[in-house]
Design a protein around this nucleic acid. Sequence first.
DNA 1: ATAGGGTTAG
Length: 734
Amino acid sequence: MKTALKNLFLTNPSKSFNSYIQKCVSLLKIFSDKGLVAGGTVFHCHLLKNGVLSERCIAIKLLIMYLEFRKLSEANQIIKDFNGFDLVVQNCLIKASIQWGNLSEARKMFDEMPERNDITWTLLISGLMKYGRLEESMWHFERNPFKSVVSWTAAITGFVKNGSSFHGLKLFVRLLESGVKPNQFTFSSIVSACIEMGDFDLGMSVLGLIIKTGFENNVSVSNSLITLCLRMHEFDQARRVFDRMETRDVVSWTAILDMYVERGELGEARRIFDEMPQRNEVSWSAIIARYSQYGDHIEALKLFRNMVREGFKPTISCFSSILCALASLESLQAGKNLHAHVMKMGIEGDLFIACSLVDLYCKCGETKDGRLVFDLIENKNVVLWNSMIGGYSTNGQMDEAKYLFNNMPARNNISWGAFIGGYVEYKQFDMVFEVFNEMLLSGETPTKPTFSSVLCACASLTSLEKGRDIHGKILKLGFQYDVYLGTALTDMYAKCGDIESSKQVFDRMSERNEFSWTVMIQGLAESGFAKESLALFEEMKRNSSVAPNELMLLSVLFACSHCGFVDKGLEFFGAMELEYGIRPKGRHYTCVVDMLSRSGLLSEAEELINSMPFQPEANALAALISGCKTYRNEEIAERTARKLVELAEKNSAGFILLSNIYASAGRWIDVSNMRKLMREKGLKKSVGFSWIEVRSHLHSFYSEDGTHLKSAEIHDILELLRLEMTDPKHIPTF
DNA sequence: ATAGGGTTAG
């Protein structure tokens, strides 16, 4: 930009007029492409001063610039000065109307034009396609007297971008039959169609045609071919295409960068990124998006800062990646700052941005602000609806989620999944299965994450029957087990007590992550297979790159405790911080206290409690008291009980345990005192409930009675049964 | 005027 300006001022308009005009034209294009409103306006004055506004090409470029800036009055002024509407000016206006989404205006202008050229027709055809009006577009295409490659390509591209690749291909065949020669744009589009249809073989036969017509060395065609190979996971082939290219542009580099990212080789990708001969905002977006997708949000933010520092203007996709990173980090303040920035740029109406913003606010627990963003968007798409429903779901606002779900104009399987996920997270399992069944009845196919959340519900209910049923459905759909689904199945079987099936699923998984190992180790430990659990933990340390985590160590300690491996347990406990860098939490202490108390090491257990850097869990004290009971140690029991009373002042868990201990000792007066005290303090025991399944419908019963619809009837029947059992002479009267 | 790389929801 700077050099272009300097260059211009060195040119004398009176001496080399043509070169001067050409430089002005290219500068105007820069102003309008980069959206430099102020610079463009000043440059307008400069042109006025030099008296070159009457030059046709200058006036047109100026008009295009003002249309780009949406400065309508300035644009109209230029049209007036230039003496009205010729074909080129009208084409510019049609293009602007389409860009601003005013299709009816574009149609009106088109219909009223006295003459039209190929560009006019193509503008309308591609414009209609852009807004999904396929039939209307084709109607014009068929009537277009100038069927050039460009209009053919516009129509083909329109089909591909609207997900009708097959129609695009049919049109391509017609193009070949008509004798018009396809160009590099056409081929790029056709390769995209193959990608969209997932048809690698078809892509390869198109490649034959590309070579035959001599386009194989074209940069953009090669770039699409790289993407074709990437999508089909033919990474070596992709690299071969890249290596064969004579010239590569920033797109080629970005595509190959993405290949390494896709293979999970982020280090190699970063190396390529750092060594790329040229970068643009898309290459930046690509690497930033991937860092965020791989969970390194901090690095993504650092890269974003570097990008801005190097003077690149972040694109919409880049903003949405960063907003997504901020959502994952739950940094509300930074998110709000970026929101302000987005508003300043005037892109808050973009659907990608809006979705990310809704997600950001909801992940930070601010569903109201999320809703504000949601309500401001006029043309909502499914994704936006789903974001909002998902936001309410994760925040437990199921009534709001339900209302939106019932009133959305169009649902897809992700909407169902988002809605069901909320019920899973907030443990309303009867609703989970009700909605899930409704989903199946509606003919929607659940996605993998939906299956895994429903499996999680089965695990929580320990409903093996339902779990197996879901497993069957997954098999029937022919889903490949991915890590998430495999882990969910492993967990479900383990929690439902079918440890054999659990092990089977785990053994068959081709890829295992931290969660997979955790659920299996935990499953074995909690099902009483302590030795196997410990062995698996050792195997993981030996054979995988997964590092031990808090939950695994809890399972390992649990296993040691239940196997009576006191020494081994203490060894693991000691190694937690030193070897694995995990600071023991309350749960770990409780587990070790329990282990010591079970084996009669009461004073060691008491010592451990006293040495804790923070408040012990009430359960730890209860475990010790229970040990004292087994090994008859009144002294420690008394001291510990006093601590429990102290603790009970602060939380309800302590109260409940204490009253349970009193109850098991038969001290009913103390029990009733505790209950009274709890009521006075407003402490509430979390509600207990149980459930049964009748004809695949789930009935829940809460400890506060009367929540079941047929509660009264059930009690009547119970009374009948009781009578029958206690009074042999009683004859039931049905 | 037409094309290729990056972006949102569970």
